[in-house]
């Protein structure tokens, strides 16, 4: 399915007032971040796009695909990673992947193996085809959801809702999902992810409140955010594996802070 752009024609906020951002166009290759407090309407905007809302959702928004109204059931243009941390279906992992591929008419060999391998590269703990879908841990579930969305739901529009909550490698997950030429929307609370996109929409009270174009000064922040992330990731890993913090680790942090002050 080849799509060049998606246009979101605005609706209303939770109180019925018009949205301040009147129209939003997402083009091929765009990465757009949705930011805003919990309950500000990020997930609803994603679901409007997923279901190609036509004035029939609580927001009253309309989503046009290449300037046309589309029936969401006749075509599948989105791959979504929602906030769900667990599967509920009573199936083993292998059958589930197989069935999903079948429902998308993917007939290629070893789809199950490919999806599993990718999921295993993402997850901290291994998962296999004979495991029960509903009993996977949060990290395993999320890794499988990402791998499945990338390889089976492979679609021109990718919707990602709070990937940072998954306990998996978020950067790798985003890379896997947002391959070249896709339109990617990422709802997030994570400052690093917010700055990886050129544009971000700020949501407020259910509405698209402000569209911000990222600039060079913001980009310069990104370098430090990544460094802080890396340091925290190191501590996370260490603490999770039973290590204690000591004078040595504290010293490293203090040095790091000093270095940042000098710059």
């Amino acid at each position: 399915m080849d799509i060049n752009e998606i246009k979101i024609v605005s609706g209303t906020d939770k109180n019925g007032n018009s949205e301040s951002v009147e129209e939003l166009t997402i083009r091929k290759g765009d990465i757009l971040v949705l930011a805003g407090p919990t309950g500000s309407g990020k997930s609803l905007l994603l679901s409007d796009i997923e279901q190609l809302a036509n004035g029939d959702s609580p927001s009253g928004r309309r989503v046009l695909v290449d300037n046309k109204v589309m029936d969401p059931f006749s075509m599948r243009i989105t791959a979504c990673l929602s906030q769900n941390m667990h599967f509920v279906m009573d199936l083993d992992v292998g059958s589930f992947i197989g069935l999903h591929a079948k429902s998308r008419k993917i007939e290629t060999n070893n789809t199950v193996e490919k999806v599993l391998k990718q999921a295993n590269d993402l997850a901290g703990e291994p998962l296999s085809a004979d495991m029960h879908l509903a009993s996977l841990s949060g990290g395993q579930s999320r890794a499988l959801m990402i791998s499945d969305a990338a390889l089976i739901s492979n679609a021109p529009v990718v919707l990602i809702d709070e990937i940072e909550n998954a306990g998996i490698n978020k950067t790798m997950g985003i890379q896997l999902l947002s391959t070249e030429g896709k339109m990617v929307l990422i709802a997030t609370h994570d400052p690093t992810l917010m700055l990886t996109a050129q544009k971000r929409i700020i949501m407020k009270n259910g509405a698209m409140f402000r569209l911000i174009q990222s600039d060079d000064v913001e980009r310069k922040h990104l370098k430090y955010f990544l460094e802080i992330d890396r340091v925290l990731e190191g501590f996370r890993h260490s603490l999770r594996h039973g290590n204690r913090l000591d004078e040595e680790t504290l010293k490293r942090l203090v040095e790091l802070e000093g270095a940042n002050h000098e710059q």
Partner: peptide, 14 residues
């Protein structure tokens, strides 16, 4: 549908 993943929705409607 909001409670399950996209993949589960698709398998179920299949």
């Amino acid at each position: 549908g909001d409670i399950v993943s996209q993949a589960e929705r698709e398998v179920f409607s299949f």
